[in-house]
């Protein structure tokens, strides 16, 4: 068992380059079980790259990622690696900015695809699972709709239910509300708050500073591939030490108020 001192999700000295461009420069991040970490920072600072390294969607060029006592990005022969990573990803839910729902499947089909294929659940079990998860995100009444018939906020809630249906240990959110019309942001935030109350471990890339402050235990500010500063939200948003953090927040607030 893990006690509260050993990290649940552990990123050690993550390094990532695209050719000569160094996108992540020796980043380390420990997340405890049930903790909620927000990553903020200007566009292009490497937030998505870091998040996508966690489930090895964008493999690191250096460093290690561990979930509990398993190294996620370990070196294995191709075949074995594929098996390993598919297993690992079932434990890590991910929500994208642009939802990426499967347009050819109904809401139910989206939620049950992976459980059916990977966990071998029966149709009845799948239906129960889908209903449970969709109820949680308030989308049960749209279970037989197709993605094209949903608003952006509804799509994102289905995408969250789809990820939750795999019973993940960690949830990753990459600007989950950035593509939404302002009036639809809140319904998605509410779902994420609910997950927070259930002590889901989460890493959230976001531009919603208010939301981050209300929900997160810790905030990381990234710029140009490094973690410039990190701390509890109260400190990070009220009186950050670093000048770059101050500038970013100032600019961000100015933009948000425009």
């Amino acid at each position: 068992m893990t006690d509260d001192q050993t990290p649940f999700l552990d990123i050690r000295n993550a390094q990532k380059s695209y050719g000569d461009l160094e996108v992540l420069k020796d980043i380390s991040l420990q997340v405890q079980r049930g903790q909620i970490v927000a990553i903020i920072g200007p566009s292009g600072s490497g937030k998505s790259t870091l998040l996508r390294a966690i489930n090895d969607l964008d493999p690191l060029t250096g460093g290690e990622v561990w979930l509990e006592d398993m190294q996620i990005n370990k070196k294995l022969p191709h075949r074995q690696y594929e098996k390993h990573i598919n297993q690992v990803r079932q434990n890590i839910g991910m929500v994208f900015q642009h939802f990426n729902l499967f347009p050819h499947l109904s809401v139910r089909g989206n939620v049950t695809l992976a459980p059916k294929m990977l966990k071998g659940l029966s149709d009845a079990e799948c239906d129960k699972l889908a209903e449970e998860q969709l109820d949680k995100v308030g989308m049960l009444d749209r279970i037989d709709y197709y993605p094209s018939q949903l608003s952006g906020g509804q799509k994102q809630r289905v995408a969250i239910a789809r990820a939750l249906a795999m019973k993940p240990k960690v949830m990753l959110f990459d600007e989950a509300t950035s593509a939404l019309d302002p009036e639809l942001v809140e319904e998605v935030n509410l779902v994420m708050k609910k997950l927070a109350e259930e002590h889901m471990t989460m890493v959230i890339v976001t531009h919603e500073m208010g939301f981050a402050e209300a929900v997160c235990d810790r905030v990381l500010f990234m710029d140009q591939g490094v973690v410039v500063e990190e701390g509890p939200p109260s400190k990070m948003f009220r009186n950050p030490d670093n000048e770059r953090t101050q500038n970013f927040l100032k600019k961000h607030l100015a933009n948000a108020n425009r």
Binding site: N55, L57, E82, N86, Q87, V88, R89, Q90, I92, G93, M94, F96, H98, N100, L101, F102, P103, H104, L113, A114, M117, L118, A159, R162, A163, M166
Partner: peptide, 27 residues
């Protein structure tokens, strides 16, 4: 077919073959 479709499927733990068969090719 949008790259995000393959990514979303892989994120759920589907193999490349499974993602092609169930998500990309049907679309």
């Amino acid at each position: 077919v949008d790259r995000g479709q393959m990514e979303a499927a892989r994120t759920l733990g589907l193999s490349r073959g499974q993602a092609l068969r169930k998500v990309v090719v049907p679309q």
